[in-house]
């Protein structure tokens, strides 16, 4: 069964479409890398999926249920989560407040406490800084917190926009490792937009390359990683 199905998505900001009649189908439990050069439309696609950017045309279904007309909040409450590009930690709130914010709609008090403890066990660096204000966290800690906060609500499909951006290689490896392990353990479906092609393909089953608003390649991750011509043509290295 497909976890996320997009049909004929067209998205733009006024001029020519950035995403043009895109079809994409992601199987339940798959980890898919969304690749493409800077400006290819990865962020636009993820924001359109969550309703932050309106669709010009097309349909989006989550586990067979049409989400196209729903608000961002309702899509999230249906099980679609996005860890957006950049520093999405609310800097005025503490680590613990940021974390719990992700689960308020999902869990009652006791279950929320338990879910938060699970996340602290998964991310010990956050556990040590529970009461720290968001603005005191390092880039790596913020990215971990953003991931933990999204996972807290137990989404069915998790979208991530360049989580490794600006992180040291060690922090990136740790983050992708937790992501892979969580997906394997829980059957979470993941769509991971990355410029860090090697890192993304190392945790993904499948790679989708965006170019000029359409899917230019859609292959098993191992194939893509091993195909220098494709890498050169679409990913610029």
């Amino acid at each position: 069964m497909s976890a996320l199905a997009c049909e004929g998505l067209t998205v733009g900001y006024g001029g020519a479409p950035v995403i043009d009649a895109l079809d994409l189908d992601i199987a339940e439990g798959a980890v898919v890398a969304l690749l493409g050069a800077n400006g290819a439309g990865k962020t636009t696609l993820l924001r359109a999926l969550t309703g932050l950017v309106p669709l010009r045309t097309g349909r989006i279904a989550l586990h067979g249920r049409d989400l196209t007309a729903e608000s961002t909040e309702d899509r999230v409450r249906s099980g679609l989560a996005l860890v957006p590009e950049g520093r999405s930690v609310v800097v005025e709130l503490t680590v613990d407040e940021n974390l719990r914010l992700g689960g308020l709609w999902r869990h009652r008090r006791k279950a929320l406490d338990a879910a938060a403890e699970d996340m602290y066990a998964l991310f010990p660096a956050l556990d040590r800084r529970r009461r720290a204000p968001g603005h005191t966290l390092s880039g790596g800690e913020r990215q971990m917190l953003a991931l933990a906060r999204a996972l807290l609500a137990r989404p069915r499909v998790l979208l991530l926009d360049e989580p490794s951006l600006g992180l040291a290689p060690k922090a990136t490896a740790q983050l992708l490792g937790v992501l892979r392990a969580t997906a394997a353990r829980t059957g979470l479906t993941v769509l991971l937009a990355e410029q860090n092609v090697t890192g993304a393909l190392s945790v993904a089953d499948r790679g989708v390359v965006l170019s000029l608003g359409a899917v230019a390649a859609d292959r098993p991750a191992a194939d893509l990683a091993a195909d220098p011509a494709l890498r050169h043509a679409y990913l610029g290295f």
Binding site: L52, S71, V76, P84, S88, V90, L101, L104, W105
Partner: peptide, 24 residues
């Protein structure tokens, strides 16, 4: 309170709050 947390988050960072299911 959880409601207060949502009120603050919605004010400080509306887009992030919406992405966390807060009815901004």
């Amino acid at each position: 309170t959880p409601l207060g947390l949502q009120l603050r988050a919605a004010a400080f960072a509306p887009e992030t709050a919406r992405l966390l299911g807060v009815r901004v």
